[in-house]
């Protein structure tokens, strides 16, 4: 006997947003990077939009599903690259969970850029720790830390500004209320 899967609107929403994030991440993985590990992380724009438009749980679903799907598509599931992606994603989700009250309650002062920078730094730091502890067990790894730190700051700010721009009411309607179903914003 077949058991029917009941799909809630939430499932549809998560699937749609994850698909968008996967597309961005795949395009990005095809672009060569000057240094292994340095990339813009544009797919995180989706994570931040979901966090701000919906809630943290949805953002976590979208992000973790994206990491899983992209690693399968790129062919590095359970390879070091996957462990690094997953570690970075978990760390930045944790950081977002901690920082999000600041943005929700003090939105005059703190916006998407804060979220993005904090998440990018958590991502970078965790990946560096994983590399140090597991892949390259040598203190020499820290010599590269300023490069990764600078890249995280730069791309974190850039992504945050993009999110802030997309969140505006008149920004071409990309992330405006009427285009996303089941909006939970008041």
């Amino acid at each position: 006997m077949l058991r029917r899967l009941i799909l809630t609107p939430d499932d549809h929403r998560i699937a749609r947003l994850t698909a968008a994030a996967i597309a961005i991440a795949l395009v990005e993985s095809a672009v060569p990077s000057p240094l292994p590990g340095v990339k813009p992380g544009l797919a995180n724009i989706i994570t931040l939009l979901v966090l701000l438009r919906y809630d943290w749980t949805t953002a976590a679903w979208v992000t973790l599903l994206r990491v899983l799907a992209v690693s399968l598509l790129v062919g590095q599931f359970l390879a070091p690259g996957f462990v690094l992606s997953l570690g970075g994603a978990l760390a930045s989700l944790l950081a977002l969970f901690i920082v999000q009250p600041l943005v929700r309650c003090q939105s005059r002062w703190f916006g998407p850029v804060t979220l993005s920078i904090v998440a990018a730094l958590a991502h970078m730091l965790t990946q560096l720790l994983i590399v140090r502890a597991w892949l390259v067990p040598s203190p020499g790894v820290w010599v590269l830390a300023p490069v990764f730190f600078g890249a995280a700051l730069f791309f974190g700010s850039l992504n945050g500004l993009i999110v802030a721009w997309l969140m505006q009411p008149n920004a071409g309607g990309v992330a405006s209320n009427e285009n996303l179903p089941h909006n939970t914003q008041p």
């Binding site: 850029v113 730190f149 802030a164």
Partner: peptide, 30 residues
């Protein structure tokens, strides 16, 4: 499509502080 709001709307005061703190940390680390 061009942002009508000034950059101040995108980069809020706290954001700027977080960014400055980050840059300071980065310089010290380097």
């Amino acid at each position: 499509w061009f942002p009508k709001h000034p950059i101040r709307k995108l980069l809020r005061p706290g954001d700027a502080l977080v960014l400055l703190a980050g840059i300071a940390g980065w310089v010290m680390l380097s």
